[in-house]
Design a protein around this nucleic acid. Sequence first.
DNA 1: AATATAATTGACCGATACGGACAACAGCAT
DNA 2: ATGCTGTTGTCCGTATCGGTCAATTATATT
Lengths: 205, 205
Amino acid sequence: MNEKFYSLPVEKQQKIINAGFRVFSQNSYKKSPMNEIADCAGISKSLLFHYFHNKRELYLFLWDKACKITMEYLTEYGCYEPTDLFEMMERGMRAKIRMMTKYRSMTAFVIKAFYEKDPEVNSAIHDSYQKYFEIKAQDALARVDPSDFVEGFDLNMMYREMYLASEGYLWEIIQFDGELDVQKLEKDFEDMLKFWKKIYLKKGE
Amino acid sequence: MNEKFYSLPVEKQQKIINAGFRVFSQNSYKKSPMNEIADCAGISKSLLFHYFHNKRELYLFLWDKACKITMEYLTEYGCYEPTDLFEMMERGMRAKIRMMTKYRSMTAFVIKAFYEKDPEVNSAIHDSYQKYFEIKAQDALARVDPSDFVEGFDLNMMYREMYLASEGYLWEIIQFDGELDVQKLEKDFEDMLKFWKKIYLKKGE
DNA sequence: AATATAATTGACCGATACGGACAACAGCAT
DNA sequence: ATGCTGTTGTCCGTATCGGTCAATTATATT
């Protein structure tokens, strides 16, 4: 990409980036025209091509940007400090909720991008994803002490279950397009967590 | 549309209809090519145009079909029999959950269609929607006895809140693409309802 | 088997949309 | 005037779109 992009006023950078997030999050990669993104950012298509030499480059740039912002949030909320599994999930969720209220279309973009199947970008996305995040879950899962949990249940199953429920919950938020009540959301999720603890942990806890 | 469509073997009708639901639920109206729908249904584009004279006609036909199926479910689950508000919501939800597990892409289509803004179909959809469903809520709301509820709260607010939460919950289900556990879903929603009753109804109940 | 009839398709059309290239323009400092 | 930088309008080759239609295949009738 053209490094001059970075010397643009930050506000303008943001406008272009957000336009990208918006359009790419609403259509598939192939059906997201550069034209539309440019319009949405209030610049000409030519200028957009001036900063990003082609569509793929812009897409991958946006993905990377989203990953970095996500990482910032996750570290800021202490998601990489070693704790137990539930604590980790709570911190992760809190970070994500905050992030979504601030960058809603970005979050939608990330999800769409993750499931994007167009061969032009597909593999690049997945490689990058693994490098960025996949370590975390393994890490926290490894620290788990099985004796804390109720007898005869599958740890991975539980994690999967919890993970899916959280993701679904986040979807709900993304789709809703009105003002978001952060405190309510966080309380809701805390309730969810309490519920899980109650089911999965041994009574002694 | 071409009435001969109905004399097709039902299985083939279904295949075409489902293809429509799928494609229209994944892209916007404008970016859903007839080509793709035909391929997805295993027929040629020409044949698709033989049965539905143009794209708009197919889209509106699908919308109508979806509405009718929805109505069937709602009546089957007793959603139109007069009861109290909570009972109505529960029946409605139960019907919708069942419906979604059977016709997932249709449900996704309905939601997308409802928010579709393309002027070519937008108004037709909204007119139809009002005719079909909007009566129901008013109806049940009118039967509500305000004295049953806790002091000083806005009935419409509560309904809106409950409605949004339900819709969000359904979104979560639609987005998830694996086998659905109907019983779990229904239990979850029952819990939600219990929770609402606890907050909104007077203790005497 | 020959014929009529219905189902289904491939090839095609005009219009538009697309990604991308590039020369030109405007503003501004020298 | 002369660069330089940011920005745009215009153009191009190609692909795609909605939609048509003649041609082909399958089915029913005699």
